[in-house]
Design a protein around this nucleic acid. Sequence first.
DNA 1: TGTAGTGGCATGAAAACCCATTGTATCCCC
DNA 2: GGGGATACAATGGGTTTTCATGCCACTACA
Lengths: 163, 163
Amino acid sequence: MALEHLFQGSALNAVDAKGRVSVPAFLRSVIERRGDAKTIVLAKHESFPALSAYDPAYAALKHAKLERLLEKEETSPEAQLEYQQRNLMAFAATEEVPYDSSGRIVFPPMMRRKGNIEDLALFLGTGETFQIWNPTLFLKDRHVPEDLKDICRYRLEERGLSA
Amino acid sequence: MALEHLFQGSALNAVDAKGRVSVPAFLRSVIERRGDAKTIVLAKHESFPALSAYDPAYAALKHAKLERLLEKEETSPEAQLEYQQRNLMAFAATEEVPYDSSGRIVFPPMMRRKGNIEDLALFLGTGETFQIWNPTLFLKDRHVPEDLKDICRYRLEERGLSA
DNA sequence: TGTAGTGGCATGAAAACCCATTGTATCCCC
DNA sequence: GGGGATACAATGGGTTTTCATGCCACTACA
């Protein structure tokens, strides 16, 4: 599991009435260097009230990892069940969305709700994946370090928005 | 075993009086990218009260995998028997059904019964394969993680159905 | 001749696509 | 170093295409 290109940086983009957002160009360039797909995979983040996102190539890697884990371990009913559940979470609980020539995706309504996304989307690179937050929730979350919140505040200011 | 295209996402479709369902387009596109068949293979899921489904190309892969497993292990009578049983399950206990130009399959009555499918079919991608559930049973199953049930509830809501 | 299974067609809703415009950062020339 | 021009990113709107699904017509078998 060594992906050469990593997601990094931050951006704050608008979500329009149709639920569309521009995926920041610097994230798109990573996706396209990792593979040749022009799509991103969306999932509910497992510990934050936000979305987790990555490219299809990363999803495939994750799957291969799970498979190897299963083959190594005993094929006991418990191990089987655990495998089934993780596989379901990894694939059924995610949605793959393409972005168009101008780099925009439309949020599937379910994901938009699960990620609490309203009219602004904060993109944060985290290496192998990136996150998409509602900036308001980001500032409220007590698990987020103050320095990161400063970034969010800065991005808001940039747009002439208070907080 | 490295399939490039993976089944992912979820959908809830209606089963009509004749037992026909639309296979979601995003699953069909994976099937057609994996091979050129416009058919799906149905089987009773080995640990859930639901159906497991995949494309013919994957069935071939599965067969090859079983063969390799047999070659690796001792060809003891027990191993032989185990192989025979699994092979039977993989092929005799499955049904291959074509989908028409509008993407619809007809559930073979036996499969419909084995999978407990009534008038709604919940499709769930799981990477190499996908599952087809009766949404009511899905919500009742205690092995299904709550996050996934939320997805099912959301899909029902989308259709204006309670639960 | 009725009935059941199959295949194709029609429709309404939703999603993908395309084009235009704005804003911003960059580059080049003066 | 300043000013204009250029390229790319983000966003708004409208139009076309696709999807799911109901409906009807045809065939086969009883």
